[in-house]
Write a protein that binds this DNA or RNA. Sequence first.
RNA 1: CGGGGCGUGGCGCAGUCUGGUAGCGCAUUCGGCUGGGGGCCGAAAGGUCGUCGGUUCAAAUCCGACCGCCCCGACCA
Length: 561
Amino acid sequence: MSRRTETFLPTLREDPADSETTSHRLLLRAGMVRQLGSGLWTWLPAGYRSIAKAEQIIREEMVAIGGQEMLLPLMQPAEIWRETGRYGIGEMFKLQDRRESDLVLGMTHEEPVTWHVARDVRSYRDLPLILFQIQLKERDEPRPRAGVLRTREFSMKDSYSFDRDEGGMEESYAKHIAAYDRIFDRCGLEWHRVSSDVGMMGGAGADEYMAPCPAGEDSIALADGYAANIEVAVSLAQAVDLPSPADSPTKVETPGSTTVEDVAGALGLAQGALLKAIPVMAGDRGLVMALVRGDHSLNELKLSNVIGEPVRQATPEEIDSEIGPTGFIGPVGANCPVICDLAIDGNSYACGANEADRHLTGVDPTRDFQAERADIRAVQSGDLTEGGSRIEIVPAIEVGNIFKLGTRYSEALGATFLDESGSEHPIVMGSYGIGPARIIAASVEQRADDKGISWPRALSPWDLSLVPLSKQGEPERGTADDLYTSLSEAGLDVLYDDRDANAGEKLTDAELIGCPLRVVVGKKSLAEGKFEVQVRKTEAEESIQVEGATDAITGLLDTID
RNA sequence: CGGGGCGUGGCGCAGUCUGGUAGCGCAUUCGGCUGGGGGCCGAAAGGUCGUCGGUUCAAAUCCGACCGCCCCGACCA
């Protein structure tokens, strides 16, 4: 039951400054959220209704796979984070109490939940377990952005599975996949489950749930039967014409040609017939040269996974002093380890000669230099999957993720159990997250039009907007009042715009807020004994008889979304 | 962390270059008209111009420091 005159729903007529993405702009304008500080967002009543609906769907599906809801502290002793070696994470908020004890604000809850399991689970009889909570997370993001998409504080459903062995963990993982598939379907999102990098969580495997939309921070590679985060995506490289092999490399003059495009043009070669050398600094290993085909680009994450350490691009000074003049470097005779991409599978390439204004042609990677071979290139739109499907790369929001953690946390925190024979084993864990705010933002991004938000019924703050065009005291208003009462008694959530405002203001506001259905009570149609109904998503309008209107509206709502 | 931008009534902006009594639109309050896509008339309220310091007879405006916010990149369990 919501009368607009009694509801804190501050809609904005104009776009706020500083709102770049669709969801940021519309959630603000529709009176759903307000910003308190950088990366700190308040959910106003309307927005909180939507968040609560997403959380309830999540809750139901988690319970359906045997999850048990609980609530862990947001503030945690630093000690358990030291034990797992994660106290040093830069995104973690740290503080001290008045006795100068170190505390952290939880950015996730593996440590405390595992700590409890370590103390209270002893036997294989206590396993398996799936524990979950819907709790705030705090992260000192280097750069909060895009409204509620990347914030420093946000609600997350996080669940943790505890099993006696890998097989059990795989079962828990499969249960989460089933639950997550249902959750995102019920939320009306377009989504893909993609394989992903394991990141800082460590562990044996990970999948992400990605909702494609222009504001997405991640990129995913999509093809028939294939979906992967760009970070780990693999593809078949497009074929390239190479010149005839040579007995040995030939040095050629390439004055001023420092880019792949210049060199290919100067030598009359396809860009793919060049070797692109990308020097990186890799922690303890120092300078390493990554080598990809000239028409490809390096995937730094793949490279750092191969090297086993984070990498950064080498500076021109480092390149000049260690290898050769920037723009003319190559693997032949280079004074550093070389990692060569798998797509470099021919025997006659051109590359930098490590001398100013000179390149080499006829270079055979298996003959002319030593290299470790690995998949380090970035997948490109137009590449083919192994099955032959064309890959497209699209931006997407990560709305959920699931990790096979293994025993990293259970071993660090002593979470073990005794099996039937009395021998002790570490518990095998999984960790699973969903961000309700990102579900809301993704839904807005995927479904909004130029008039505003368009909610699926599952997430809409109200089932419908009821808009009387008459003002208070006029006879038509009484009819609208009756309809409001009747719809509410039928169990529908109705936003009743009982303000004495102009028709235009009320109608555009209803479209901005975006409930799936808008019912207008106006003099003209009422004279014919009818109400006017508009489906927000399709903008299809129809008239319904005043008589039996509540049933008709209930029925119509059940047919959309 | 590197680069760029912005901070002036609730919101969106002008004014800053060239120092001289702080403005516009919308919103708000009151009175009236209007009543199917943000309408009209009249009256009113509301601003230490982000903060601190400096220059000056005089600072929103010039100088310095700091704070906050946004965007691009880096980063992002």
